[in-house]
């Protein structure tokens, strides 16, 4: 099977990217911690439609980055299935799987270290395009043309940036180069892991807007991993929001619904933690904070959030609630005592 026919298969079906019961356990090595394990993902289900968006939010250490790495093929998963447009990647050999993973491209947090400082933007884009031209049997002249195309797509002036080195560009421009490089392989999806947190505030929104526009212009879907719910809302207001805690999805639904009406206390804590722009906004009346910080000593028994939840009962500490619909067709949550609380700041 040649690469190009794989591409055709990938594009043909159109179910997008689907994960079912993805499990990942890290085993610690070394002398002191040997044998101890960390459950990074405990059976995660998700679906990103073609050209759609899904956002994963949670604290540091909740497993959201691991999920992104698995999607980009940088990490193996221990159990569950991952399918791209209906093709189950789990059963494929590594050699057959790679072309699929190649079409899921990662946008890293730090554009300063994601680009080789000794190579010009020209060189950075030529390499993947040369490979791409060889795979698809395109002439060499296509490379320069495509280079300019992808740069224009990300809002950069090709004549200005091509001859430059990464250090000659601003953080925002660098991140655009990273995105342009990802686009050289005609990706199915971009995995943006905290893609704007190191970008200057005045340029951040431009990158978010670009990711949103790329969904429309090139039909790429975006998996957005962040701890900042407001940026997730900007990119994927029409997509699903997944709230992940210690490897488990604890609430899920359309982004706007979850923000307007979160019922899980952890989601409420996350939304409460967003700074209030005093003067423009007034804090939500029921702002919540976790009773304790996240610690690796917290029990795996019962609800994973029980140790930090202000409302935990004995039942929460012994029994784990599953993610389920509970009557609402759109919104899923994993809490025995779901309750609406006004935690989001409202305009003054």
């Amino acid at each position: 099977m040649s690469e190009s026919t794989v591409d055709d298969v990938v594009s043909a079906a159109g179910d997008g990217i689907r994960g079912r019961g993805i499990v990942k356990t890290f085993k610690a090595r070394g002398n002191v911690l040997a044998g101890s394990t960390v459950q990074a993902l405990r059976g995660v289900d998700f679906h990103i439609p073609p050209g759609g968006a899904a956002s994963f939010i949670g604290e540091s250490g909740c497993g959201k980055t691991t999920l992104g790495r698995i999607l980009a093929g940088l990490e193996d998963y221990d159990a569950g299935t991952l399918s791209v447009n209906g093709v189950d990647l789990t059963s494929l050999s590594r050699r057959k799987r790679d072309p699929y993973f190649r079409r899921i491209q990662m946008i890293h947090q730090d554009p300063y270290s994601a680009l080789n400082p000794t190579r010009t933007v020209d060189a950075i884009l030529t390499d993947p395009l040369t490979l791409r031209a060889r795979q698809t049997g395109r002439p060499k002249s296509w490379i320069a043309k495509r280079q300019r195309e992808v740069l224009s797509l990300v809002g950069l002036e090709p004549d200005y940036v091509l001859s430059r080195y990464p250090h000659q560009l601003s953080g925002g421009m660098r991140q655009r180069v990273v995105i342009a490089r990802a686009l050289t392989v005609d990706p199915e999806a971009l995995v943006a892991d905290e893609a704007v947190s190191m970008i200057d505030v005045s340029l951040r929104l431009g990158i978010l807007r670009l990711l949103r526009e790329l969904r429309e212009t090139v039909g790429v879907s975006v998996l957005f991993i962040t701890h900042d719910v407001a940026t997730a809302r900007y990119i994927g207001a029409d997509g699903d929001l997944y709230v992940i805690y210690r490897g488990q999805i604890i609430e899920r639904g359309p982004t706007e619904t979850i923000i307007a009406n979160p019922v899980h206390p952890y989601t409420q804590c996350l939304l409460s933690a967003i700074p209030v722009l005093h003067g423009l906004e007034v804090p939500g009346a029921d702002r919540l904070t976790p009773t304790e910080p996240l610690a690796d000593t917290q029990s795996d028994a019962g609800c994973l959030f029980a140790a930090r939840c202000p409302f935990a009962t004995d039942r929460c500490r012994t029994e784990r609630p599953d993610l389920a619909h509970h009557g609402d067709p759109e919104q899923l949550h994993a809490c025995f005592y779901p309750e609406q609380r006004r935690v989001v700041a409202v305009s003054a």
């Binding site: 925002g172 340029l203 951040r204 929104l205 719910v229 923000i259 722009l277 305009s347």
Partner: peptide, 24 residues
């Protein structure tokens, strides 16, 4: 003004947020 306008918010129309042109 531009800086405050460039912050995406949790409520209201997301399109209210506008990026600043140019670069620092």
């Amino acid at each position: 003004r531009g800086l405050i306008n460039a912050i995406p918010r949790l409520t209201g129309d997301p399109e209210v947020a506008q990026p600043l042109p140019g670069r620092p």
